[in-house]
Amino acid sequence: MTPLLTMPRALAALLAVSTALVLQASVFPHVAVGGVVPDLVLLVVVAAGLAHGSEAGLVLGFGSGLLLDLAPPADHYAGRWALALLVVGYVAGRLASAGRPRVAQWLPVAAAAAFVGTSVFALTGLLLSDPAVGVGELLRVEVVSLVWDVALALVVVPLTLGLFARVEPDRAFA
């Protein structure tokens, strides 16, 4: 049985997720639009799903979501991002087309995954009434973050795909 995460793959994923996490927490707040930053970790998970299929996307989504839930600025209920990104990784893997993804193919996938991810996160928040905000405010934030995500996907997804292809040229884009 092929291990789900080979060592180089896991290291690459950890590196990508960590970088995205730190950038999202420390750099992008300086250019935030109304306090909303792009979900870089989500985009990395999308790329992982595109590259390695829905199972890898699922697992990486869970792991990186867990990191996002626990890393310093976070104060929401742990597990919310884990659930959201798990879905994102799975959806991205399912929607991925065979072969090396082209922009026209993966950009809609990334947009859809981002929408699903932020929606799941927002919905769990509503269910748990975690941040006690209204639906209107929630929609505004979601729209802004979706625009951010689609714009940043053009950079983050190719970079991450390139990283995965480099560490494991043989297996990438299976």
Binding site: L58, Y77, L83, L86, Y90, T124
Partner: peptide, 20 residues
């Protein structure tokens, strides 16, 4: 290939819910 086992999906989702 690449499709997750159902047990894995259930386990991870349950893990999320447990964490919450």
């Amino acid at each position: 290939p690449g499709r997750p086992r159902r047990s894995l999906v259930v386990a991870l989702v349950l893990a999320c819910v447990t964490l919450m």
